[in-house]
Simulated scan of single mutants.
Amino acid sequence: MASTRSLHWATAMKAMQADRAKRPVGLLAAQGLIRATSAKRRPLVVAGAYDKAAIMTAATAAAKNHQARFGCTWGEALSVTLKATWQLAKATRAVSVH
């Protein structure tokens, strides 16, 4: 006899929601800080190419602020701000190409 497997819609939806990537704490705040300060002083994209030194400088400066604000470790703060900085750089490059 074949065994049957029941599927509960609510349980399946909760499992799908749990699998989605969660936004790190402070990501949007880091993007706003980088957009307002570092990215204006030194552009993240120059002539259609990423300026990796500018990206790292902006992320490091924002990570200091992020660590003080959220009380996380340096590694977590740098991870969040690097993600935010690269997202801004990619968006800037996409706009400049088109």
Rank of each mutant, 00 (worst) to 15 (best):
Q87L: 09
A15M: 13
Y50V: 04
A68K: 13
V95W: 07
A94H: 06
V97T: 10
A21C: 11
A2M: 10
A36G: 10
T85V: 02
R35V: 00
K22A: 07
K22P: 03
A2W: 10
S3Q: 11
H98M: 11
W86F: 09
Q67A: 04
G48K: 08
K83G: 01
L28P: 01
W74D: 01
A62V: 01
T73F: 00
A2N: 10
L27F: 10
A53Y: 03
T81L: 02
A2I: 14
A61H: 11
A84N: 01
A18L: 12
K83M: 06
A21K: 15
A68C: 07
A91Q: 09
V97Y: 06
V25M: 11
T92Y: 01
W9C: 08
A58L: 06
M16I: 12
W86Y: 11
W86L: 12
S3C: 08
H8S: 10
T73A: 05
R5E: 15
G71L: 05
H66R: 03
K52C: 06
A68S: 11
G26C: 09
V45G: 05
A49I: 07
H66L: 03
Q31W: 00
K90C: 04
A77M: 04
R69M: 06
K64Y: 07
G71S: 07
K40Y: 01
S6R: 15
A29Y: 04
A68T: 15
S38N: 05
G48M: 09
K22S: 08
L33R: 14
F70T: 02
A84D: 01
Q87I: 01
L7R: 14
K83D: 00
A63E: 01
A2R: 13
R69A: 07
A59I: 05
A30P: 00
G32R: 15
N65Q: 12
A63K: 03
T4C: 12
A39T: 04
G32S: 14
L88V: 08
D51H: 03
N65G: 05
I34Y: 04
G71D: 07
S79K: 14
A2T: 12
D51F: 06
T11M: 07
W86M: 13
M56C: 04
Q87M: 10
R69T: 11
T57D: 11
N65K: 13
A12V: 15
G32K: 14
H8Q: 14
N65F: 14
K52H: 10
A12I: 14
V97N: 03
H8G: 02
V45P: 08
A94N: 07
C72K: 05
A94C: 06
T60L: 09
N65W: 15
G48R: 05
R35H: 12
D19I: 05
K14T: 11
K52S: 09
N65I: 12
T81Q: 06
K90I: 03
P43M: 09
I34L: 13
S96H: 04
T85H: 02
L78R: 01
Y50L: 13
L28E: 15
M1K: 08
R20G: 04
T11G: 00
L78P: 00
D19T: 11
A10Y: 14
V46C: 03
H66M: 06
V95A: 13
A58W: 03
G75V: 05
A94K: 10
M56W: 08
L28D: 15
A10L: 15
P24K: 01
Q87S: 13
M1S: 07
K64I: 03
T4H: 15
L82Q: 11
V25R: 14
L44C: 07
T57W: 02
W86S: 08
